[in-house]
């Protein structure tokens, strides 16, 4: 891979790009220069929330605007990591994967389809979502969550009372429905950052550690 840099913008003519949606791990390369470690001041470290993220080009690039990065990251952690009641985490990941499928964010879809599989044990259904798209049929509950996330993602918005009614009939509470809304809405944020500031790559095969 030979990056070609013209002024501020970098393109990657020889990048090993993914062929389509996948649950396999992908890398991500930035089109703009991430903040280098030498440029980090206190506010930039605070923006990362987790200092180890300085090594990741996506977060080091977003660290140019550290205050919004910190608030974004803490929002992300709560929507997808707060297991204090509400929608099961696997189904929040399903919403994230669905939205990424609709918007066409191959990188985000890889991370969150993998998370959905790990948390639900339903790798075949998740793969069907990636392969067939959001019209896939799985079971009543996942179908309703997938359709709700799709409807909330398209513009003009198609999310309506029928989506809520379908979830309510399946037994979802206010808080669970609000979690589904938040998970889908958040990936309309995350997809647009991942898609607009860089692109995914297939990582070079690594030396496999002996188990």
């Amino acid at each position: 891979m030979t990056p070609h840099t013209a002024d501020l913008v970098t393109s990657y003519p020889d990048l090993h790009r993914p062929d389509g949606f996948t649950q396999n791990g992908l890398g991500w390369v930035p089109w703009l220069e991430p903040l280098s470690p030498a440029e980090f001041e206190e506010r930039h470290w605070n923006g990362l929330v987790d200092r180890a993220r300085a090594q990741m080009p996506y977060f080091a690039l977003l660290a140019h605007e550290p205050e919004i990065l910190a608030a974004r990251t803490l929002t992300d952690f709560d929507i997808f990591g707060n297991a204090d009641g509400g929608l099961p985490l696997a189904e929040r990941e399903l919403a994230a994967a669905t939205v990424s499928r609709v918007n066409g964010c191959v990188f985000c879809a890889s991370v969150h389809s993998r998370n959905a599989t790990r948390l639900s044990g339903r790798g075949d259904d998740v793969q069907a979502l990636l392969d067939e798209g959001v019209t896939v049929r799985t079971d009543a509950r996942w179908d309703a969550l997938i359709e709700a996330a799709r409807a909330l993602t398209v513009t003009p918005n198609e999310f309506g009372p029928a989506h809520i009614a379908r979830l309510t009939e399946l037994g979802l509470t206010d808080v669970e429905i609000a979690d589904a809304i938040a998970g889908a809405a958040f990936f309309n944020w995350a997809n647009r950052l991942m898609l607009s500031l860089g692109e995914p790559e297939v990582p070079a095969p690594r030396q496999r550690a002996t188990p």
Binding site: F159, H163, I177, I181, A184, A185, N188
Partner: peptide, 9 residues
Amino acid sequence: RVAVGLTVL
């Protein structure tokens, strides 16, 4: 989308 979703809810 949060605003739309909560309004519909």
